[in-house]
Amino acid sequence: MKRSRVPALLTLGVIAFLFAPLVVLVVNSFNASRFGGEWDGFTWGWYEKLWEADEVWESLGVTLKIALSASLASMLLGTLAACALHGFRSWLQGVHSMLVTLPLVMPDILMGMSLLALFVVTGVETGLATIWIAHVTFCLSFVTMVVLGRLQDFDFTLLDAARDLGATRAQAVRKILLPLLLPGVLAGGLLAFTLSVDDYVITFFVSGPGTTTLPLRVASMMRTSRSLPVINALSTLLIAGTFLIAALSFRLQRRA
């Protein structure tokens, strides 16, 4: 029977809609025109300006520091959580599962606002540490979901086989479970990393005066029209980075 072409065309349209603004952004990062309404000739100028913008690289450093440490911590916590959720059926896991899922549907502004309330009431100075805590909190649930998906595909009879062949429980976990689970954990970690690099709303609430992450920097650049084309250049680099990380993460999740 002849299939309708409408869904395929609509899909193409939606993908074009998703990418058009990003393509214009990338093209304009090489455009000499300030507002990008028309093509004024090719230039590397905005990238040179970006290269000289020390404050951008400084905030990139802050962002990477937080993203790396927050994704490591959430990988550890999330993997343990996924093992617990997958391995046991009890009231405890019922509560646990609800706690892990709720942050996924909590609007960012509420999470940022409530963490700020916690830090204000307990008198904790906002800064690098409070941003790290916030990032671990929202990454944790995402890592758990990714690892849990991986665990559901895992053949647990392999562990029994290892035990039958004389491995201790610890050996079986270390030599069988961990290597097979690792791609899922890494994919979760990559997701956590991208989410942490990306986050603006929650970070805005819990950051201190001295700690400016990259999204906070971009937001302040967006308010001054002087640096607009430089954001195009920066965005192009960030989109390229996102594409690489997403492709890598896909590869990790597919390799069974």
Partner: peptide, 21 residues
């Protein structure tokens, strides 16, 4: 992958892209 990349690209950058468009 095509759906996920814009989703994972920086939220502010996507807003900025529309602001300049």
């Amino acid at each position: 992958l095509l759906v996920v990349v814009p989703f994972l690209s920086n939220f502010l950058i996507r807003i900025f892209a529309w602001k300049s468009l």
